[in-house]
């Protein structure tokens, strides 16, 4: 059986509307009959990633691949890159701006949440070129 793929353009200009891709993915997974704990983990991983793309990278592309044994989320942006991944993975570390903070973002918990809710996470980043975050959630 071929993988099912959903692809979304994440608009980087509007903090308020961030989360459209995650919401759509969640609703698609519900229709496909996945258990609620899997859907919840995918939703959290993807929403945190989507917010990161809006806050730090002026948007990007989010792709969700539903395979036989797992769901893979690939978030690709052309933002500034992450100079120090170890630092970025620390709870509480954030470089988000005041606008993000006013809306309740920028707690420095995004990447740690993504790591915790996924079974595998890989960050491929080049400073000045962009970042691709790949997360896998096992469904079997």
């Amino acid at each position: 059986m071929a993988d099912i793929v959903f692809e979304y353009q994440v608009d980087g200009s509007d903090y308020h509307r961030a989360g459209e891709a995650s919401r759509s993915t969640k609703s698609n997974l519900k229709k496909l009959g996945f258990p609620s704990d899997i859907i919840r983990r995918v939703g959290i991983c993807m929403y945190e990633g989507e917010i990161n793309m809006v806050i730090h990278a002026d948007g990007g592309v989010a792709k969700v691949v539903i395979g036989l044994d797992d769901i893979t989320i690939i978030l690709k942006d052309k933002g500034p890159g992450i100079p120090n991944i170890d630092l970025a993975m620390q709870e509480g570390w954030s470089t988000a701006d005041a606008q993000a903070n006013d809306l309740g973002f920028g707690a420095g918990m995004g990447l740690p949440n993504m790591k915790r809710c996924s079974d595998e996470m890989n960050i491929d980043t080049v400073v000045g070129e962009g970042t691709t975050v790949t997360m896998k959630i096992k469904t079997k």
Partner: peptide, 25 residues
Amino acid sequence: DLLSWVMGRAEEGNVWLTIMSNQNV
């Protein structure tokens, strides 16, 4: 009120008490 804390810690079925009132909530 910090959204990622809520994302990471709130459990299914919880009541979420907050003073944040924008649509990201």
